[in-house]
Nucleic acid binder design. Structure first.
Lengths: 98, 98
DNA sequence: GTAGACAAGTTTAGAATATAAACAAGAAAT
DNA sequence: ATTTCTTGTTTATATTCTAAACTTGTCTAC
């Protein structure tokens, strides 16, 4: 195979957006991600859980102003996976050299 | 939404690989794509059909040395879609600027 | 205090997708 | 002629995605 496999956890629009947002930021909460991604709450919840299950993001649940607050941050594993994914998919962007 | 939507036709590993191979080459036949992508025949057949249905590739069926021969080439629409996809997904690669 | 709207997520049900196994139709070899 | 090979296509199943429905609790107005 001339093409590197693409991590199925990251090869999804919403999950990729979430991870992209978490790169370079210390942490982000549910509503921030909701606003920036434009996703529905249900979809966001599911995809955060998948990223957590993959070990790519850490999720910390607390309360803020009496309301539940879900805070996400990228794990080292998640960052590594993101960087690998970006490298891998770039192979697909360059026309074959013969 | 801070992120451009990703064309679902191209946001699939095999279809993206096929289109990537077709960029910069005049045409490619089934076995060439089979070899370069490492896909199964069934999967390749299905994904070529989807790309054809989307108007991204033209498919010409002939015979070569007595055997059926399926030749694929990228349409202008397919090239445009590919370039847009590449541009769009790059938004996801750059850490947010604040 | 309680009825009704609001906030923050989660669960789940149906739709859509992906993929390989099974199938088909003819060609070549034995 | 029957077995095997070549080139694909169809389809059955498993997986995945997504939004609607639900849950749990808070705040506001009466």
């Amino acid at each position: 195979m001339a093409f590197a496999p693409l991590d199925p956890v990251l090869h999804n629009q919403l999950r990729l957006a979430i991870v992209s947002l978490l790169v370079g930021v210390d942490s982000a909460d549910f509503n921030f991600l909701l606003d920036k991604t434009g996703a529905t709450r249900g979809n966001l919840s599911v995809q955060i859980t998948k990223l957590k299950d993959a070990g790519y993001v850490a999720v910390k649940k607390t309360f803020k102003d009496n309301y539940p607050n879900t805070r996400c941050s990228l794990s080292p594993k998640g960052l590594k996976a993101f960087e690998s994914y970006v490298q891998a998919i770039k192979d697909y962007f360059v026309p074959a050299e013969g």
